[in-house]
Structures are given as structure tokens and as C-alpha cells.
Simulated scan of single mutants.
Amino acid sequence: MSRLDDFFFGPGRGNQGGDETVVFPTRQIVNTRTNEQTIRKIHPTHITNVNKNIKRIENYYPVTESTHNEYIVKEYDCGSDINNPCCRPVKRCKW
């Protein structure tokens, strides 16, 4: 009998004593470490304001003239936080 047997099963394994040794399976413990990474993606916005001026000249005899100015502005409100933008179109009255 080896010393390892003595450790697990006790000395005098063949004795008629009432001692019994039970060995359970090895308990496995898994430690998980999670590393969190933040990736900032910045999507810049460029707003192009188009000022469309249309002149319509109608010729009559006698000559009359009219001018039509149309202004189109596209405006967006993206808030003040560049890390958490929430862009929405800003409704404006048509001129």
C-alpha cells in the first residue's frame, strides 16, 4: 500500500474497523474576467443650405416683370453631446 492510498483511504485499509473513506470528484471552478472596450464612432454632419432664387420674367405688351424668391434651408438639431447625438430635423416655416 502506498502513502497516497493511506492519504485517501486511511491507514490499515484492510483492517476490519468501521472506518470508511469516500472520495468525491474534484470540484472545478472557472473564473471569467470580462474586459469591456468602448469604440467611439463619430459621424460628422455637413448641412448644405441651398438658396434657390427663381426669376420669372413674363413679357407682355406692355412689359411687366415679377420676381419669385424661394429659400430652402435644411436644419438639424443634434444636441450638444457629441458622444450621444440625437439628430432631428428642425421644422421651420417656409418663407
Rank of each mutant, 00 (worst) to 15 (best):
T45C: 03
H68M: 14
G18K: 07
I57N: 11
R33H: 10
Y76T: 07
V63E: 15
E58P: 02
Y76I: 10
S66D: 15
E70L: 07
G79N: 01
I39F: 05
D5V: 09
I72W: 06
I57A: 09
R56V: 07
I72L: 07
W95G: 12
S80V: 04
I57G: 08
R40Q: 05
I39V: 03
N83R: 02
I82H: 02
H68Y: 13
V30W: 08
Y61E: 13
R92N: 06
R27N: 11
T48N: 10
E58I: 01
E20D: 10
R88H: 04
R3G: 15
I42N: 05
N31K: 15
W95C: 11
G12R: 09
P11C: 00
I42D: 04
N35I: 11
V63S: 12
N84W: 01
S66Y: 11
S80Q: 04
R88M: 02
I72D: 06
E20Q: 13
F7H: 08
N59A: 14
S80W: 04
V30G: 08
S2G: 03
G12K: 04
Y76A: 06
T26A: 15
I47P: 00
T38W: 06
C93L: 14
T26P: 14
G14N: 12
V90K: 00
E58F: 02
E65W: 05
T45Q: 09
V30D: 14
M1Y: 09
V63M: 13
D19Y: 11
N51Q: 07
N53Q: 08
N84T: 00
E75K: 05
H68Q: 14
K41A: 07
F7L: 15
R27V: 11
I54V: 05
E36M: 06
R3T: 15
T21P: 04
I42F: 01
P11W: 02
I29K: 11
T67Q: 06
H68K: 09
M1T: 05
N31L: 15
N15G: 03
T64R: 11
I39H: 05
